[in-house]
Amino acid sequence: MLHIKCPHCGLRSQNEFSYGGDATVKRPELNKEVSDQDWDNFVYLRKSPRGKHLELWQHISGCRQWIKVERDTLTHEIFKTLKANEKV
């Protein structure tokens, strides 16, 4: 069981959260010419590293806020949790 410290609610168990994937992918900017390659990169391509991974979770059974979690994908150690708009 992962224990995730929600920056709004404190330490809660994994059951209260739902996973949202890689937090480092950036949507191409609005109202600008976007190449197919850029879309491909945003929608499909992922690094999926073994080790530190910055990812999105939603505290779905709590405050319902999206948060960022820095977690080790091999050991599941959680280094840091942040509000969605905070930078690492």
């Binding site: 992962l2 994994q14 059951n15 996973y19 990812e55 994908t73 091999l74 599941h76």
Partner: peptide, 13 residues
Amino acid sequence: DGYNSYAQRGNLP
């Protein structure tokens, strides 16, 4: 398990 993992062992939930 629902989140990126290389652990080769799972979680109980």
